[in-house]
């Protein structure tokens, strides 16, 4: 599930951007240190494979719906966490730019949810300890299934957290969480089964592939540290957001209040109130707070001005278009 620019506030977007880009930079350094660089083309085509494999839809028995591969855990298992993070992040960049899935600002959130959490939390803390040191089929199966479940649960939690912190929807934290986590439980089971099917096939067909064991990119200690960092970051974001529902917006409001709105504003505010009183059919509605109230009072002006703006944009566009054609 992709976060979109429209769902997040600049503060949340910015924080997750810096977190994700730090992780991407760190992983890039690690991958670059690879002796012969053989993983560079491999992670490139495997990321493309995830795209291609998403074309292969299969029916889920008894539900009438269909599913496809997500791929985060698969990439982590095949490439190790560092290369996997880069591969997933690149998929998300292409989706944001080409398919307008997500958007530039939300990219940080998406890399965090779908790349960092699976590769640096679910993979080292759930999959590796379970899969390590045993070739038992049951254990391997369990490792993949639980790994996929963990990856999707974490990702879903990330979506909920970021959405609620941004405050662009009215979804309450608890309610949203109670919907998202169970849905992603189901998606996680499907993802686990699909990943398992692919890995089983690959192990049978190419038992010699050494990468299948997963290069030990992160030690467990580093993984725990990273997990803690993620938690701390989440906690700090939560605290920050509860104090200032929207830091940047608040800052801009202050700048605007002090500088950009000249005294004349009072004049048209006053005139506006008259207009409002004159046109309101139901004058006894109540306002939410003074800020919201003043905004509500400007409703008519907003609608009229909005229409005007649209006309202006359309007109300018038309003129540009005509000029373009003539040249």
């Amino acid at each position: 599930m992709h976060m979109a620019d429209a769902l997040i506030s600049p503060a949340v977007g910015g924080i997750f951007w810096s977190a994700s880009m730090t992780a991407v930079a760190r992983s890039s350094r690690k991958v670059q240190q690879d002796l012969d660089g053989s993983r560079i083309p491999l992670m490139g085509v495997l990321a493309a494979f995830v795209f291609a494999a998403q074309m292969i839809n299969f029916s889920i028995p008894g539900t009438g719906s269909s599913g496809h591969l997500g791929g985060s855990l698969l990439l982590a298992i095949l490439l190790g966490p560092d290369a996997a993070l880069l591969a997933i992040a690149s998929v998300l960049v292409v989706q944001a730019l080409f398919f307008a899935d997500g958007g530039l600002l939300a990219l940080g959130c998406n890399i965090f949810n779908l790349g960092f959490l699976p590769a640096f939390v679910a993979y080292p803390l759930v999959y590796r300890p379970l899969a390590a040191g045993s070739d038992g089929r049951l254990r391997q199966t369990l490792a993949v299934l639980l790994g996929a479940l963990a990856a999707l649960q974490l990702g879903a939690f990330g979506v909920v957290l970021e959405t609620v912190l941004s405050g662009r929807t009215d979804l309450p934290f608890r309610g949203f969480l109670l919907v998202m986590q169970p849905i992603h439980l189901a998606i996680g089971v499907v993802e686990g089964m699909v990943t398992l099917a692919l890995l089983t096939f690959l192990r049978k067909a190419r038992p010699e592939l050494p990468q299948l064991a997963g290069p030990g990119g992160v030690t467990r200690r580093a993984a725990v540290a990273l997990g803690l960092l993620a938690l701390l970051l989440g906690g700090w974001v939560a605290w920050y957001a509860s104090k200032h529902p929207d830091g940047l917006e608040w800052a801009i409001q202050r700048i605007a209040g002090q500088q950009a709105l000249p005294p004349a504003v009072g004049g048209w505010h006053g005139r506006l109130a008259q207009v409002q009183a004159g046109t309101a059919v139901l004058p006894d509605y109540h306002f939410r707070g003074s800020r919201e109230g003043s905004r509500a009072a400007t409703s008519l002006a907003g609608v009229a001005g909005g229409l005007l703006t649209l006309l202006l944009v359309a007109g300018t566009g038309w003129i540009l278009h005509l000029r373009k054609r003539r040249t």
Binding site: W268, V275, A301, G302, G305, T309
Partner: peptide
């Protein structure tokens, strides 16, 4: 838009 609307 608000500014223009108000003027109008």
């Amino acid at each position: 838009p608000l500014l223009m609307g108000t003027l109008v």
